[in-house]
Amino acid sequence: MTYVSACRNGRMGGMNVPNDQGGLRARKKQRTRAALIDAGLDLFLAHGYEATSVDQIAAAVDVSARTFFRYFASKEDIALAKGTEFDELVLDALASRPAADPPLEALRAAMLDALRESAADSGVQRFLVTQHLINKTPALLAGNLRRAAGAEARLTAEIAKRQGLDPAEDMRPRVLVAAVCGALRIGLEATCADPSREPARMVELVEQAIDLATAGIPQRWGEDPHRW
């Protein structure tokens, strides 16, 4: 085997040569995706959602519209991307909670942990401004509701699994998730209404809303699916 053929096969002297091409491609794709989100949100905020086109977003990142559609199905996906990322944080946080955690404790901790992680990110102000944009843009509200409904369904399935329940027969997982997610929405709306939109205040308001919404829900559930 020649030196060239050995390199092409990823081996030298019987040893594997690290091949980071896959990792480089993944990082490049992630950077392009993030750049498209940032450019889209900048344009939405500067010119309005309806007035911004996919071609403008793509041009701002110096890529083609065809490349844009490799990452996103529509410009709506750009506007909802931050919310989708937050959904994944909550789901991952819930899945990593100890199995012995009661349902309310597990979901409350997962939601607040994800929120604190988001608040520590420099993009939290962008997230809050985007939420404000969604709330005042009718064209985005329906899509945002679909996104939220999908996330709630996945959280419900996770809570039901942790409790060994069938969510089709026992409504408690769904009711708990709806209460906590409704509180999240109210807390975010209250934060968006505050001109300062401080990340610490966001966490405080959401925590307060969750505690108010779940005040009557016990930590441990009984055997009767018709009552907590």
Score class of each variant (00 low, 15 high):
residue 59 A to G: 05
residue 104 L to V: 04
residue 69 F to G: 04
residue 116 R to L: 09
residue 117 E to G: 07
residue 84 T to A: 07
residue 86 F to Q: 10
residue 56 Q to Y: 01
residue 123 G to H: 11
residue 73 A to S: 09
residue 71 Y to C: 05
residue 111 M to L: 07
residue 84 T to G: 00
residue 69 F to D: 08
residue 97 R to F: 06
residue 98 P to E: 04
residue 114 A to E: 05
residue 130 T to H: 06
residue 129 V to K: 01
residue 61 V to I: 06
residue 145 L to S: 10
residue 100 A to L: 15
residue 130 T to P: 06
residue 98 P to D: 14
residue 55 D to K: 14
residue 100 A to P: 13
residue 62 D to G: 00
residue 111 M to T: 13
residue 149 A to S: 13
residue 76 E to D: 15
residue 68 F to E: 03
residue 119 A to C: 14
residue 118 S to W: 05
residue 57 I to E: 01
residue 114 A to S: 10
residue 120 A to E: 07
residue 113 D to W: 12
residue 80 L to A: 12
residue 147 R to V: 15
residue 65 A to C: 00
residue 128 L to H: 06
residue 105 E to F: 01
residue 67 T to M: 00
residue 88 E to F: 11
residue 125 Q to H: 14
residue 64 S to Q: 08
residue 95 A to D: 08
residue 120 A to N: 02
residue 102 P to A: 15
residue 97 R to G: 06
residue 144 N to M: 10
residue 106 A to V: 03
residue 92 D to I: 15
residue 111 M to V: 09
residue 54 V to W: 05
residue 72 F to G: 01
residue 82 K to N: 02
residue 71 Y to D: 00
residue 144 N to I: 02
residue 66 R to N: 13
residue 71 Y to P: 02
residue 80 L to Y: 09
residue 146 R to N: 12
residue 140 L to P: 07
residue 98 P to W: 10
residue 102 P to H: 08
residue 141 L to R: 14
residue 132 H to K: 15
residue 102 P to F: 08
residue 141 L to F: 03
residue 89 L to M: 14
residue 67 T to P: 06
residue 62 D to P: 07
residue 98 P to V: 15
residue 108 R to P: 07
residue 53 S to K: 11
residue 137 T to N: 08
residue 123 G to D: 14
residue 63 V to E: 08
residue 70 R to G: 02
residue 72 F to L: 00
residue 92 D to K: 15
residue 91 L to N: 01
residue 128 L to Q: 01
residue 126 R to G: 09
residue 94 L to H: 09
residue 58 A to M: 10
residue 71 Y to T: 01
residue 134 I to A: 03
residue 77 D to A: 11
residue 135 N to E: 15
residue 141 L to S: 02
residue 111 M to P: 05
residue 117 E to I: 11
residue 58 A to Q: 11
residue 69 F to N: 00
residue 145 L to P: 03
residue 120 A to T: 04
residue 109 A to S: 12
residue 122 S to W: 03
residue 141 L to A: 09
residue 92 D to F: 12
residue 102 P to S: 07
residue 130 T to C: 12
residue 90 V to H: 02
residue 81 A to F: 14
residue 67 T to E: 07
residue 119 A to W: 12
residue 85 E to G: 04
residue 134 I to K: 03
residue 73 A to E: 11
residue 63 V to L: 05
residue 98 P to A: 14
residue 62 D to T: 02
residue 125 Q to S: 14
residue 88 E to R: 04
residue 81 A to Y: 13
residue 146 R to D: 14
residue 128 L to I: 15
residue 121 D to P: 08
residue 114 A to G: 08
residue 86 F to L: 14
residue 147 R to E: 07
residue 62 D to E: 12
residue 86 F to K: 00
residue 67 T to L: 04
residue 134 I to Y: 06
residue 97 R to S: 06
residue 80 L to T: 12
residue 82 K to V: 09
residue 94 L to T: 05
residue 123 G to V: 08
residue 108 R to I: 01
residue 58 A to F: 03
residue 117 E to M: 01
residue 89 L to G: 03
residue 87 D to L: 01
residue 121 D to G: 09
residue 82 K to T: 08
residue 86 F to G: 00
residue 109 A to F: 10
residue 133 L to K: 05
residue 86 F to A: 05
residue 79 A to L: 14
residue 114 A to R: 04
residue 87 D to F: 06
